[in-house]
Design a protein around this nucleic acid. Sequence first.
DNA 1: GCTTGACTTTCCCCTTGCTGGAAGCCTTAG
DNA 2: CTAAGGCTTCCAGCAAGGGGAAAGTCAAGC
Lengths: 276, 276
Amino acid sequence: MLKIGEFSRLTQVPAKTLRYYDEIGLFKPAQVDKFTGYRYYIIAQLPRLYRIMALKALDLTLEQIQHMLDDDLSPEEMRGMLRLKQAELNQTIADVQMRLSYVAHKIQQVEEEETFMAKYEVILKDVPELKVAITEGIAPDMARLSYTLSTMFGSVAEYLDTQAVAPVGPAFAMYLDDEMMETNIRIATAFPIADNITGTDTIVSKTLPAIQAASAVHHGSFAHLQDAYGAILKWIAQHNYEIVGSPREISLVYDATGNPDDYVTEIQFPVMPRQA
Amino acid sequence: MLKIGEFSRLTQVPAKTLRYYDEIGLFKPAQVDKFTGYRYYIIAQLPRLYRIMALKALDLTLEQIQHMLDDDLSPEEMRGMLRLKQAELNQTIADVQMRLSYVAHKIQQVEEEETFMAKYEVILKDVPELKVAITEGIAPDMARLSYTLSTMFGSVAEYLDTQAVAPVGPAFAMYLDDEMMETNIRIATAFPIADNITGTDTIVSKTLPAIQAASAVHHGSFAHLQDAYGAILKWIAQHNYEIVGSPREISLVYDATGNPDDYVTEIQFPVMPRQA
DNA sequence: GCTTGACTTTCCCCTTGCTGGAAGCCTTAG
DNA sequence: CTAAGGCTTCCAGCAAGGGGAAAGTCAAGC
């Protein structure tokens, strides 16, 4: 019969932990003095505690351990839980390696810029699916891209107006070509809407699927949007992602009559981890 | 001016999280209606939020992020924090890989034994430094090992008695040879004591350093202790540890006049991860 | 038998980064 | 003007304990 302190010294398990295990019913003392509440343990309890320690080293939760020890399950169930944990740990390693790659990137950034306030912060975000009113078009060349875009935005906005439908988020453009084109650039302009509407021959309503996107925000005139694209593309390459869709250029702040320096544009590239 | 819900949709950051960041002072709304308490955000706040997201992806705590963003620190400090985080993440990976190796071992065990109740659970434990009264000796061969040991235990116990010192923990034997010997086995027997004592020419008091040990508990007669040794040695090999000291054989329950089936013995091998 | 000091008990708060829910205002569309 | 949704604050909880307080217990020395 050992008091909690003795048992704790013997096993190197803190007394607090033993009390906690008692509380959650994972490991109860062999005997409890019902007048003083003193917990008494016996050597014969060591195997269970050792088993708990061993399973804890596998990163199982105490609840899982309790399940394993008390609800004596079949070897198949046991294997199942272990394989699950194995998969989980492998996922953890992948996650941590991704974080390491972020850190390395950040360190490089600090070295290069001598300040950690990067011009662009590229982050990975989950973009939910989105109902949009969308139209496609082609800009003959880069010079007329902006003009083509604003015409297309105008036509969709106007149509929504006639349908008495208000956009529920900022409008955006999509670049549909798989690679950068100098001429005949395929583009689309979209307005998020709450409910599907009936379209026209050029304007349709559809639902864009949810995606993971590498995203950055650009402040200022469109003239320097290139830099943001560059930063995102570099990020994607460095972190071993793959572009899996058309980039979106979202006009968060845009006022054709305002100062271009105030414009705010978010750029999103749909991505997926390579060879996932 | 965006209400919290709009800003949340825009950034894909849950409103709850924005409120939390406000509460801890990491990211406050541009304006708060002082009558209604409504939080209002502006697009110009996006960069800070994106920076927060980016740093969060590095697994930094919100406190560290706040420190980085608000106490504008030098690039050196910045690099320092990042390198620290890098080391931390590398350590995490090593940890997780160790866990993976445990899981693999456990799966193998389940396959082999068709039950997950292993006969021996080998665990890694930290053994604190220990003051002991210890004596060394040599057993001429395996047959006389047990006799030699009990003589030695007896002599130390007797000496402690004459000094009016009580052991503060279970006695143990140590095997001092680097490899298994068939003859002339160097052994030591030790009793943990609270304070150093003056020794004799054969019995000395010293402090054993703290170690990490691979440990298992054996129940029953000493005749089958081999199995426990085998289980630990296998574990050490499989998990890429290295033996860095003399194993200890700790008599948790031992009564020379009692039933050997009731004996409980813990075996500890001092170990270190290979090439650490 | 009494005191002292080491243990042990319960209880509550704290950790991280939120998430969920309840009760009660606020805003806006119809 | 009302109803639905959005917003507010406050409270609880997660996982696995750690820290510390106040009070009760135990064993030893006198």
